[in-house]
């Protein structure tokens, strides 16, 4: 079983971190009086997990019949979502006192227009259904939806909190994790529990004794070698080959522009160029990352960045 499921907390008291949020949400559940809710925060810090705990606690055994999980980034458009909501909301919940729950993950992937439609849907079915929305960026959720929800901003995991989770897995899976390895896991995952558990499971499949070196071996295998090659070719002045490689790499590994730029940033420190140039290039990365958000064609923005690497 994948550890991200195996070690997903099932009850409020198993949840690590976000104490204030958990306390308030638990109170909603105990009073069986649920408002619409909006969970905001970065990836892998427990938004979906909390929504699942709410459903499990509220409905017990039959939670699956009363809980609909949708993902805005995977569904094709608001119409698909609306139809699923309609079908689900048509029947009352088995426990008739409590409205059913719809969990809409990554709601910030919806366009503004789709969010307007969602807002109307929320109103139409408010008698029979409660929504829990999750998002990475609350600023991407339109005000009318925010104002209809109890908003909870999830904080990133601290090192202590992540260590609690990792120690628990260490015990149950009979691993031996070196002290330095804990630091590495926190640093690499940046507090994303899903990422941390995936790295851990990959490491454990190689060796139950997990040290710092093993973690870096797994992580560097996860990062495509091509980025360094692309930069090297660009530096030598063969821009056309560099951009061809960039295109193939992005397609082969289904990497987004953001992931590419993160890797480029890391690689810049290893390049054989002056420190001043390194800092200049990192500054360009920042500029281009900003432009990618504003623009419409990530590849052209990356090309514009790559042109700066030419040294000849």
């Amino acid at each position: 079983m994948l550890w991200i499921e195996k070690y997903r907390p099932q009850k409020f008291n198993e949840f690590v971190g976000q104490e204030h949020i958990v306390k308030r949400v638990k109170a909603f559940v105990e009073q069986e009086n649920l408002p619409h809710q909006l969970y905001a925060g970065s990836a892998g810090i427990g938004k979906s997990t909390l929504a699942l705990i709410v459903a499990r606690t509220l409905f017990g055994e039959g939670w699956k019949q009363n809980f609909l999980e949708l993902n805005a980034s995977d569904s094709r458009g608001i119409d698909v979502i609306r139809n699923e909501v309609k079908d689900f909301a048509r029947t009352r919940s088995i426990n008739t006192r409590i409205p059913k729950i719809i969990f809409l993950d990554e709601a910030d992937a919806l366009t503004r227009e789709a969010q307007q439609a969602l807002r109307r849907t929320m109103e139409t079915y408010s008698n029979t259904v409660r929504f829990i929305l999750s998002c990475n960026f609350i600023s991407k959720i339109i005000d009318p939806i925010q104002s209809r929800c109890a908003v909870f901003k999830f904080k990133p995991m601290t090192k202590e909190q992540l260590t609690v989770i990792v120690k628990d897995i260490e015990k149950k899976e009979k691993l031996k994790i070196e002290k330095k390895a804990f630091d590495a896991i926190y640093e690499i995952s940046a507090g994303d529990v899903r990422r941390a558990e995936n790295i851990l499971q990959s490491c454990a499949s190689v060796n139950k004794n997990i040290n710092y070196e093993l973690i870096y071996e797994i992580v560097s295998a996860a990062q495509p070698k091509e980025i360094k090659e692309i930069l090297d070719v660009a530096i030598k002045g063969d821009f056309i080959t560099a951009r061809k490689k960039l295109l193939t790499t992005m397609l082969k590994h289904s990497m987004s522009g953001l992931e590419i730029i993160k890797q480029i940033q890391k690689e810049i420190w290893n390049l054989n160029i002056e420190d001043q140039t390194k800092v200049h290039l990192i500054d360009k990365c920042g500029e281009i990352e900003f432009r990618m958000v504003e623009g419409s064609d990530e590849f052209v923005q990356l090309e514009a960045l790559l042109a700066n690497f030419i040294r000849k």
Partner: peptide
């Protein structure tokens, strides 16, 4: 993977490089 882990496909694609080592080896999984 997404359908069994309450996670979006997009997120899993980003996780796949970190998971591949275990996915390659673990028959049961």
């Amino acid at each position: 993977i997404a359908s069994k882990t309450h996670t979006s496909k997009k997120r899993i694609i980003a996780e796949l490089p970190y998971l591949k080592t275990v996915l390659k080896q673990d028959r049961k999984l």
